[in-house]
Design a protein around this nucleic acid. Sequence first.
DNA 1: CGCTTGGTTGATCGAACTCAAGTCCGGTGG
DNA 2: CCACCGGACTTGAGTTCGATCAACCAAGCG
Lengths: 209, 209
Amino acid sequence: MTLEPREAPLQSLAAWPAADQRPVEVRAGEHVFHEGAFCDAIFEIVDGIITIYKNALDGGRQLVGIRLAGDLLAISGNDRYDCSAIAARASTVRRVSRAKVEALMQTDARLAERLLGACRAELAHTREQLMIVGARSALGRVAALLLDLSNRTADGAPAVDLPLSRGEMGDYLGLTIETVSRAMSRLKSSRIIALPRSDLALILDRARL
Amino acid sequence: MTLEPREAPLQSLAAWPAADQRPVEVRAGEHVFHEGAFCDAIFEIVDGIITIYKNALDGGRQLVGIRLAGDLLAISGNDRYDCSAIAARASTVRRVSRAKVEALMQTDARLAERLLGACRAELAHTREQLMIVGARSALGRVAALLLDLSNRTADGAPAVDLPLSRGEMGDYLGLTIETVSRAMSRLKSSRIIALPRSDLALILDRARL
DNA sequence: CGCTTGGTTGATCGAACTCAAGTCCGGTGG
DNA sequence: CCACCGGACTTGAGTTCGATCAACCAAGCG
């Protein structure tokens, strides 16, 4: 949706001495970190899809982000993770010691710029999500999510692999499972999308979506 | 709600050569900048309250932030402002040339850290807003907004000056004017808050709010 | 005084939630 | 091979809640 504002000062954190040597594999459904746990590392997604969520007081959960390869996780800078991160599918992440990052950042402006760029991008995405959740009808929200997923994960191709279950989509959009399902069904019967499988959508009429 | 993560590397941008000498006064209801306009400066709020919003495609608007003294505006780093900023009341802001900021940032890690801190804080706030808007009932959303305003503008004191009109509260929460008004009335008749004036709330029962 | 603006309140309607059956599908074990 | 099972998804029926439309009120102002 929104592209990186300017040229990235760094392609990857892998070049930095703070990075651990070997990337970490994480299976679908596994946590990368938990909200409230001590934050001793940040992560860079090498491959896969990670969802970020917070637990609400009433027991529900609110997804606050969907992050893809190249994105950074846990850049909040607090001593404790302020969100949980869970792999939507099998993914691999690079673990980077937070202490080393902070030490390096004092002296190297490029690293701070890299983090700033990641934070700006995340802020833009979160605002975009806020626009989606705040304003429109259930149908519009689901449609906006599908468009966003298409643009981000499939580069605009018609076939969109849905990394989120209906329940997760609901948690992202502030809707119930049933409402998401109904919205998908309506989009299908309107010939705007096709659903060969429940986790694969084909966008037939991008304009109306 | 969420405090600044660590010690701020800089108290204010005023000390920086990129800052204009005189702060700018802006009257209530006046724009600081417009979404889509060329972004040649960022701003630091010296005093007052600024609301950030984006225009939705359907004509509505979505508030994406309420910013107070000390906060920075327009740190997205894009060539064009990605939001509009409007003074909720008479405020004064410091204008800082974007070109100078970016040039300085290349060499001085402390400036980048200052921006990163602002971006992190803004991200945390936006996520908080997402939690409020995404999940709960109209009553709960209004209550959460009141609590947030109390914590941020009144430091937890019972008397909260409401800088937002009912319509703006609705735009912030994804509700209509009438629903916000009804929620306030219900909170009032439940003796949870008092409303001496429509722009002043007294929190009587913080726990239930 | 009439007009405007922002807020409140009422009545109605539709959309989304809730509760409750179904269906589909992959996996497991007899 | 097939019957069974569990989980995710879908669909249906009834209810609730918020949006809509509309009237009304209070304050500010020419």
